[in-house]
Design a protein around this nucleic acid. Structure first.
Lengths: 244, 244
DNA sequence: GGTCCCAATTGATCTGGGTCAAAGTTAGTC
DNA sequence: GACTAACTTTGACCCAGATCAATTGGGACC
């Protein structure tokens, strides 16, 4: 775990939305942090952390997509978080992981050894502050998702998921009004996020396509001609709320 | 809002599980906090905060039960949090409320004016730390709840809710192995928590009673003869996990 | 004690999404 | 370029929970 095998990355490469602690990219912070920080890559499908395991680090996603999942003894699983580039992983002050973390694409993580990170945190109020802010964001997202899970129809659920991914993952294409992105999830992973079966996901994606709300090139490449329409389908306030 | 009309309360009365900042009840902290702190009572049914409103305080529940809810334009509502005594309300660093907060019983809140609280927080790393810990707890609870909403059956949902309330609300009755508590929620509120209709809640409560998993005295007073059985019905690991 | 009101129960029926099954797609791999 | 394996779509049928519609129960108040 301690062998950084990611060479190209340095904090100068942080994606714009990188919100984790290291992401602030202030040189003085970097000096402090470099001693305890390392990069690590995971292949698609690889489990980053098993629920219940001791977790020796915290960190954030640099590139790729990972998921947080919970599983019942009989195998029913529910995704409880989607980790896109810039999202933070880990629970400072806690020893065990609460969820499985699985890479769904190849993932590069920027990790901080936990012990020194916590020491740094208690010496640097600004970091604890930032972490609180990020945790509040995650809490908002989780609660918004409870509304999706508890009260939305299958079609609305799909539309909600698509708009979240669209808002975070759009490849800017300014000579077009359309929003374009790649789905980083299989139909099964989408189902696990939405509390549906993969068949229902497939049917509803087809229905949204048939109704012109989205266009598909292949299975994963999505074009949204009209984001407002998609958000109406999601049942959201058109102003968008604060889902991350 | 500034008129404290709660007289009996002082921090010496904090319930055992009071985990909020003021709850630590160290005399020196109290001296600091007293200048910015007030009590306030709300009647059952009263809305404490409207989603989107500017929120001038943070605080914690001293007694009673309140709920956090989200509502769609068409009226579908989902409860996203249950506030029992000791739970924290508010989002330091945020201006607007993200949810409706509604008192479901008479509620006493211990409130801190937001501005001075935030100043205090930035001067006192220990408070920011504690707040982070509490927010992580809430995040865990929200994510555990996502599993309930997304993947559990109606019967499992009811059993899950009952065990959460049982674990937090039990009136100790040591000459009996049974767990006894009062439901602080109407059937409708339970339905809003569980993503069900009130009719389904009623049916499943009746079914659990018929099957001897619970006993009811009146509509609200619940006796659980065997907590292990209830938790099996909830589909939880018998060790209980970390739901708050 | 009566009656008003609201919470809760119970019944009958309907339907969205689950389940089971089969066939179609796509990307590797040899 | 055929072969495999994993992912996806589509169809047929079913059932858990929603919906609609009466009742029933239980305080609070006169």
């Amino acid at each position: 775990m301690n062998t950084p095998n990611f060479t190209a990355g340095k904090c100068g490469d942080c994606p714009i939305r990188h919100r984790a602690v290291c992401a602030r990219c202030n040189a003085d912070e970097l000096v402090e942090l470099d001693a305890i920080k390392y990069y690590r890559t995971y292949e698609a499908g690889q489990t980053v952390i098993w629920s219940g395991d001791k977790m020796g680090f915290v960190g954030s996603v640099v590139s790729g997509v990972a998921t947080l999942t919970q599983t019942m003894e009989d195998g029913r699983t529910q995704m409880v978080g989607l980790l896109l580039p810039s999202d933070f992983v880990g629970r400072p002050g806690r020893d065990g992981a609460a969820y499985n973390v699985v890479a769904t694409t190849d993932v590069v993580m920027c990790c901080f050894r936990k012990k020194p990170f916590e020491e740094l945190m208690s010496k640097t109020p600004h970091i604890a502050h930032r972490l609180l802010e990020m945790t509040l964001d995650e809490l908002d997202a989780a609660r918004e998702w409870m509304l999706v899970l508890g009260r939305k129809t299958a079609r609305e659920k799909i539309a909600s998921l698509l708009s979240i991914i669209a808002r975070r993952n759009t490849t800017p294409d300014n000579n077009s009004v359309s929003t374009v992105f790649d789905l980083p999830l299989t139909r099964e992973a989408m189902a696990d996020y939405l509390g549906l079966t993969l068949e229902t996901v497939s049917r509803q994606v087809s229905a949204l396509k048939r109704d012109g709300v989205i266009q598909l090139q292949g299975k994963r490449h999505v074009t949204v001609p009209d984001m407002t329409r998609l958000m109406e389908e999601a049942g959201d306030d058109t102003d968008g709320g604060f889902l991350i």
